[in-house]
Structures are given as structure tokens and as C-alpha cells.
Amino acid sequence: MKTVLRAAQAGTMESNDLMVIVEPGSGGISIDLESIVSRQYGAAIRATIARVAAEMGLTDLNVKAVDKGALDYAVEARTRTALGRALAPETDGGRGK
């Protein structure tokens, strides 16, 4: 099982953005999503987060996402950045740079 090294986050709580917080999981990928458009786009947002995690080879992960109506590319970018930070070596303070 591949897991992240530490908790990290990306994104904001502004309109049309989402905030993604990732942390090491305890078996599988778990996504806790809060979205103002959950009825219309909840499944799509979950699918994008899961796809990005899979692409980055992660199988064990907890994700908390708060969505304020982000478009799909923003969901992908914020997830990728949060995971990049969580996977980065400790030396840069987890900033992923």
C-alpha cells in the first residue's frame, strides 16, 4: 500500500474553489466531501479526486474536501497539489517545492 508521508492541504474557501486536506489513511481511499453543489456534482468531484490519487499511485489515503463550486480542472489541480505536498520530503517543510 502506498500512502502519503504527512497531512497537507491546497486550495481556498473562496467561491469557485475548493480546499483539499489529505492525510495518511488507514486502509483504502476515503473521501469526505462537503460541497454547495453536492446534489449536482458530488459524484463527479469524488471521481476526480479518486482518479488523481490513483494516478499518483496512492492506495491508502484520507481526503477532506470543501467545495465552493470549483470546475473540474480546479478540483484536479487542488488535489494534485495537496498530494504533492503530502508526498514531498520533510526538508522543505512539506511545501512540495
Binding site: R39, Q40, Y41, G42, A44, L71, D72
Partner: peptide, 9 residues
């Protein structure tokens, strides 16, 4: 095309 089709409520 920009947002994806919403699910029916």
C-alpha cells in the same frame, strides 16, 4: 462543456 452536465435532482 465547461462545467460538466449536472446530475438531476
Amino acid at each position: 462543456k465547461i462545467a460538466g452536465a449536472p446530475e438531476k435532482v
